[in-house]
């Protein structure tokens, strides 16, 4: 399978940490899943390792959410295929800091 160009939208703190302006566009090899997208993102921006998922368990950090195509994909299995419109680059894969008051 050829590499696919995926658009990723990061929250402000992670854009600052990774020195990114705007959205990220990354080539993802193989099936486009939460895991493959995050693997590609961390490979390009190593400073993001550990900020979205645990270093060891690879579990999503509790206050990090994954949205796309008006759906909350946070609880999807990490190897589940992402929506076609994300795969085709029509929609971004959004990594979001959960809302918190106070």
């Amino acid at each position: 399978m050829s590499a696919t160009l995926i658009r990723i939208k990061l929250p402000q703190h992670l854009r600052t940490l990774a020195r990114i302006d705007g959205q990220v566009e990354l080539h993802v090899d193989g099936p486009v899943t939460q895991r493959s997208v995050l693997d590609a993102l961390e490979a390009s921006y190593p400073m993001l390792r550990g900020t979205m998922r645990d270093h060891v368990t690879q579990q999503r950090r509790a206050f990090v959410r994954f949205f796309a195509c008006e759906q909350d994909l946070s609880h999807e299995p990490p190897d589940a295929p992402l929506p076609d419109r994300v795969v085709t680059g029509a929609e971004p894969y959004m990594i979001v800091g959960a809302m918190a008051g106070g």
Partner: peptide, 22 residues
């Protein structure tokens, strides 16, 4: 939200680089 980051500067704080956070 995003856990731990370690930052290091080698020029007295003018510029910074993230270090290992594992």
């Amino acid at each position: 939200w995003f856990g731990q980051v370690i930052q290091r500067s080698d020029d007295g704080g003018k510029t910074w680089d993230p270090m290992d956070n594992e």
